[in-house]
Amino acid sequence: MSSRSGLGPLADPQHPEAAAGAPRPTGRGFGRVLVTVYGIFALAATARSVVQIATKFDEAPIAYLLSALAAVIYIVATVALARGDRTSRRVATVAITIELVGVLGVGLLSLVIPHDFPSASVWSGFGSGYGFIPLVLPFVGLWWLRRTR
């Protein structure tokens, strides 16, 4: 990956760890934008999930629990990507992998049994209610973790 150190403006010359072979922080450069998008989804998913569980949990408990899981995953991914040390990098990889499985799984379930998923979470319909960004985001997240390794 050292051959990619010429990332130009998106690379971070102020961080000598990169040159020393240690992973570059995931929260700098393009990572700033990525963490911002993750943060927005953390906020959106958390707020939505709190409202669902507080006001109508009995209508579709499993869907709403998945909704809450999505919220937790986004929060963990946001914080881990923002911190960007070695442990955080591992945590982020796990969280984003779960996110990928979640958006694909819930997306599929919401198509197969739509009555149990009344647009219940950010992952329903592969994130169609959010411009399909939830579907793209885990791929970008995993790519960025590889790229900064």
Binding site: L10, D12, F30, V37
Partner: peptide
């Protein structure tokens, strides 16, 4: 305010990217 705090020491175009998203 949160975005401004998040990019407070980002000197690259990434700071503009964050603002664009917001």
């Amino acid at each position: 305010p949160v975005a401004a705090w998040w990019v407070r020491d980002e000197k690259s175009r990434a700071a503009a990217g964050v603002l664009a998203v917001v």
